[in-house]
């Protein structure tokens, strides 16, 4: 047998659920997974963005509008989708909400909204996926997206870092708890990525902030595709002995 067809990242026949699919890392992930021949359920609150993502994916991939600020929607919605789509081999929680606020202006309502979207939705999705009616019999892979700010401190980030560092605890606990089901649980902690979400919070900072942040990454700022590549690896069988890990995908941010 020749080696020309060898592609351990081929995801043909594998089915995945991706949250936050309408833009940024979520969109890049869907496009990459689709190119690797995976079948996708792509979810987001933003229908227009989902439709844009879908244009670059396989026509058989499906989109679903979901508001992750509302708790308790995922299991029912996922159950309905899987009935026709087929059981899943993995899920990735990319949907997230930023929150820049120093402690003295921290708003409890906003902090809880951020926690709901960034953290509780990850738990809810994992709970649904772990159910045998949703995930494939042979197990699967769950991937969360946290942040370098779950690993290192930063001013004005307490609400956001709280929500992301909680994902690290979830990763470790569920990696053990779901191992008998052969479900692997891992988390990627990205550095600063050039996305619309980053643009949306740029007004918080003085001029020159972007350059300063860039200098904190030895390899420069990341692209959404850099995180998508790591997600594809963690969903594939190339990572079949990896669970409970936090993978820094940060251009060297945490190496300094």
């Amino acid at each position: 047998m020749g080696t020309s067809d060898f592609n351990p990242l081929n995801l043909s026949g594998k089915k995945f659920f991706i949250s936050g699919a309408a833009s940024g890392i979520g969109r890049a992930t869907c496009i990459l997974l689709s190119k690797l021949d995976a079948d996708l359920i792509m979810a987001d609150i933003n229908l227009k963005g989902l439709e844009e993502t879908a244009k670059e994916c396989k026509p058989t991939d499906i989109i679903s509008v979901m508001d992750f600020s509302q708790s308790g929607i995922i299991k029912e919605r996922l159950g309905g989708l899987v009935a026709s789509f087929g059981k899943l081999n993995g899920c990735v929680h990319i949907a997230g909400k930023p929150y820049i606020s120093p402690l003295k202006s921290l708003n409890e309502k906003t902090a809880l909204e951020v926690f709901q979207i960034n953290t509780m939705t990850a738990l809810e999705l994992s709970k649904a996926f772990a159910n045998r009616s949703i995930s494939a019999e042979e197990g699967g892979s769950i991937v969360y997206i946290s942040s370098v700010y779950a690993l290192v401190g930063s001013s004005a980030n307490v609400g956001y870092s709280m929500s992301k560092s909680a994902l690290h605890g979830i990763t470790k606990s569920l990696a053990v708890e779901l191992s008998p089901r052969k479900i692997r649980v891992n988390c990627i902690a990205p550095g600063f990525i050039k996305t619309k979400m980053g643009d949306n919070i740029s007004h918080f900072f003085a001029e020159g902030h972007d350059e300063k942040i860039g200098q904190m990454h030895p390899l420069g700022l990341g692209e959404p595709e850099d995180v998508a590549n790591a997600i594809a690896f963690l969903l594939s069988d190339l990572s079949k002995w990896i669970t409970g890990s936090i993978m820094n995908v940060d251009g060297g941010f945490t190496a300094i």
Partner: peptide, 9 residues
């Protein structure tokens, strides 16, 4: 940080 607090508020 206080300026950031005002922006967040």
């Amino acid at each position: 940080l206080t300026i950031l607090s005002i922006i967040a508020h």
